[in-house]
Structures are given as C-alpha cells and as structure tokens.
C-alpha cells in the first residue's frame, strides 16, 4: 500500500459509445498519481489529460463523492466499488493501490442496467421497483404526533440498518444471477420493522417482488456476493425478511 510517493498505474477502461454499440477496453498509463487522491479524482485527472490532447473524456457517473448519493457504479478489478470493503468507489483512495499496478475499470454489468455510454448505466429499474410499493401511503398532513406511536430503539435501529441503502446497484453487479434482492429486500425490511409499514405490508412485498422480476433481475440463490460488496454493509438478512414477508403475504 502506497502512502507518500506518486504512483504510475496501468488502466484498462471500458469504452462504449451507446447501448447498442460494441464496447472494448482502452489502455491508459497514468503517472503522477498522488496516493491521497480519490479514485474519481484520478479519473478526473485522466480526463483532463485526454482533453488537453483534444481527446474524448471517459464518461462516468458521480455526484456527491461522499458515498451517500449512490451515483458511482464502477467495477474495479472485478469488484463492484473496488477492493476496499464497505466503501463506495468515490470514497476509495489511491493509497489502496500499488505503484505499477494494472487496474481494470468497468461499469455495472446486468441485463436490467443497460449501458448508456462508457461507464454510465441506466438504473431506472430501481426507481420502478420503488414506485411499485416502496412507500407508506400517508398523505401530507394526515399524520398523528410523532411520539404517538412508540417504537422500540431496537426496532428503529434495525429498520435503520436496512434504510441506509444508497441504491447504487453494486448488489446486482456482484450477483452471478444479477438479482436485485438485496436492494428490494432492504426497503421491504425497513418498513417491515416499523408499525408504519404494517397496513400495506402484503401488497408492498408482492408488488415490489413482481416488479423486480419484470425488470429482468435474476433470482437469489444465496451467493451473498451482494452483502460482500455493499458499500453500506446491508446484511443479506434483508433477503430473508423479504422472503418471510412474501410467504406471509400469500396467506
């Protein structure tokens, strides 16, 4: 692990013009990489150098760069979000790489996430899963006092453990079946732990699971790769919760 000296890295980056065009890896050698740079800052620098030579920059999604918006979606050396556990690609720093290392950078790969350009993918399917039932149907204004319904600290904490999902899609990218079960399960489990979620629990789980299938995500076969790459550490117990809710909903 490098800490002080600038590094040289050999990058293999996925380039693809559009959803229907054929993609390929493009090689770039990056010198003068400061170990304190974030991974995305390293890509910024590469793009600066490309543009200074009148070349086309590499497109990648990013926004908050604090690991919370869920925009970034890079598969780095074969691992969604790269080698550091519980870290989104934007929070990954170059000190985790070695001088002279070859680094491959690809987008999420899943049928339900078509590539838009280079490293940018279309994750609208997640929004549609959410729209199918990932909500409590409370109308603005029609609520009781916030302390009227006590919720145990344990239940609130458990719910929060699932609610922290950033919707990045790394779980799908890591899954051999391209399943969206961790994403979907996390939302279902968040509401399942709270009294507010109870009135709609049956229709919620059925609608969201059906939508997930409709979008072309695969089934879960307990590989647990999703949990391993999740940048916020959502447990696969979310999937167990989803299944439990689903079975309950059938009766």
């Amino acid at each position: 692990m490098s800490t002080h000296e600038n590094m040289t890295l050999h990058l293999k980056i996925w380039r693809q013009n559009g959803p229907d065009s054929k993609g390929h890896f493009e090689d770039h050698t990056m010198d003068e990489v400061n170990p304190h740079m974030s991974f995305l800052e390293m890509l910024d620098l590469l793009n600066e150098r490309l543009m200074q030579n009148g070349k086309q920059p590499i497109e990648f999604d990013h926004d908050c760069r604090e690991g919370i918006c869920g925009s970034c979606n890079l598969v780095i050396n074969g691992i969604p979000h790269g080698p550091e556990m519980r870290t989104a690609a934007c929070q990954l720093h170059m000190r985790k790489f070695n001088d002279g290392e070859t680094v491959t950078i690809e987008p999420w790969r899943a049928k339900a996430f078509p590539i838009i350009k280079d490293l940018v993918v279309d994750r609208d399917a997640f929004d549609r899963i959410q729209a199918a039932g990932g909500f409590v149907s409370t109308r603005t204004g029609s609520m009781v006092d916030a302390n009227a319904i006590p919720i145990s600290k344990e239940a609130a904490d458990k719910s929060m453990d699932y609610a922290v999902c950033i919707g990045c899609g790394a779980c799908v990218a890591a899954c051999p079946n391209s399943s969206a079960s961790l994403f979907t399960g996390a939302k279902i489990a968040q509401f399942a732990k709270l009294p507010q979620g109870a009135p709609e629990r049956k229709r919620r789980v059925v609608a969201m699971v059906e939508q997930m299938e409709k979008e072309g995500f695969g089934d879960c076969s307990n590989y647990a790769e999703c949990e391993a790459v999740c940048p916020v550490g959502i447990s696969i117990s979310a999937i167990a919760e989803m299944r439990k809710e689903y079975v309950k909903a059938l009766f």
Binding site: F135, T140, S142, S152, D157, S159
Partner: peptide, 12 residues
C-alpha cells in the same frame, strides 16, 4: 410527524 408517518427511522 410527517416523516415519522412515512417510516423514516429516526433515532429513538
């Protein structure tokens, strides 16, 4: 009140 009703898991 509104956010709690929506299922926002505030600290308790």
């Amino acid at each position: 009140d509104q956010c709690v009703a929506q299922g926002v898991p505030f600290a308790r």
